[in-house]
């Protein structure tokens, strides 16, 4: 889980203004969603993949693996879109197969839709992954702060981000200790250990928050939170790049 996070803050374009990176990714996602041709999705995957690998410096196998993270969902959902089930023979124009009393069928429309969905999903996901792999989470939260999202929400996200890793670390250590005492040797033990792990984690989390409260107070915290704005590198060439990507996707989406 810390994989994507680590790539994000060690990427080559880490210091680039997150507003520019987000703008690029957002435009690609929007175009993928509104343009009705599979070529757009394919183009998006190629562009975003290329940029993630060559511009961001993320290794290609990583980019590929992350892209396929939701492969299972996609597979199952596409099956749901492509196939139709009925108790009677389907209308003309459908290819079908009969299993006992059940008719399984599909038609050109469904297949075309599935093709569009797959390419669109991959395209949008590639854009989202570009953002996730090249921009540290704190920068993205800072971007939301600049966009005037509620400070309570921003603060909550920062605190959660901080705690997630501490808790995962804790969880790992507790699991190791349990495993060294055969906590996962049988199914029944595994159930018990998981439950104990989660409850121990809960108490740990609660106590951490209490200790942290003391540390906060000792540094003068009284309830209102101020944060220093972060500084980034702003690169004018990114606008040109964004324009190029957008134009090429529009072209891919409009050709008959």
């Amino acid at each position: 889980m810390s994989q994507i996070d680590r790539y994000a803050y060690t990427s080559r374009i880490r210091h680039l203004d997150p507003a520019q990176k987000t703008g690029l990714a957002a435009l690609v996602i929007i175009l993928c969603l509104i343009l009705p041709r599979p070529a757009v999705g394919v183009g998006a995957v190629l562009w975003m993949g290329m940029l993630t690998v060559w511009w961001g410096g993320i290794p290609l196998p990583v980019v590929g693996r992350v892209l396929l993270a939701e492969f299972l969902f996609l597979l199952l959902a596409v099956v749901g879109v492509v196939l139709s089930f009925s108790w009677e023979p389907p209308p003309v124009g459908f290819w079908s197969l009969q299993l006992g009393p059940l008719w399984i069928s599909t038609n050109q429309g469904s297949l075309a839709l599935a093709g569009l969905l797959v390419s669109r999903a991959f395209g949008a996901t590639a854009a989202m992954n570009f953002l996730a792999l090249t921009t540290p989470f704190i920068d993205l939260v800072d971007l939301l702060r600049r966009l005037r999202v509620s400070p309570v929400l921003i603060d909550l996200m920062d605190v959660m981000y901080r705690f997630v890793f501490v808790l995962l670390d804790s969880m790992g250590r507790i699991a190791t200790a349990q495993q060294s005492r055969l906590g996962y040797a049988t199914r029944r033990a595994a159930w018990r250990s998981s439950g104990l792990l989660a409850s121990r984690l809960f108490v740990d989390a609660y106590q951490r928050s209490q200790r942290m409260q003391t540390a906060l107070a000792s540094r003068g915290y009284y309830g209102d939170l101020r944060v220093l704005p972060l500084d980034y590198r702003h690169d004018g060439r990114v606008y040109l790049l964004t324009a190029a990507v957008v134009v090429s996707l529009l072209l891919a989406g409009s050709r008959a």
Binding site: L156, M160, R162, F163, V164, L167, A205, Q213
Partner: peptide
Amino acid sequence: RLLLGVAGAFTFA
């Protein structure tokens, strides 16, 4: 503030 953050992080964990 901290407690909610911890709760959210706990849900994620």
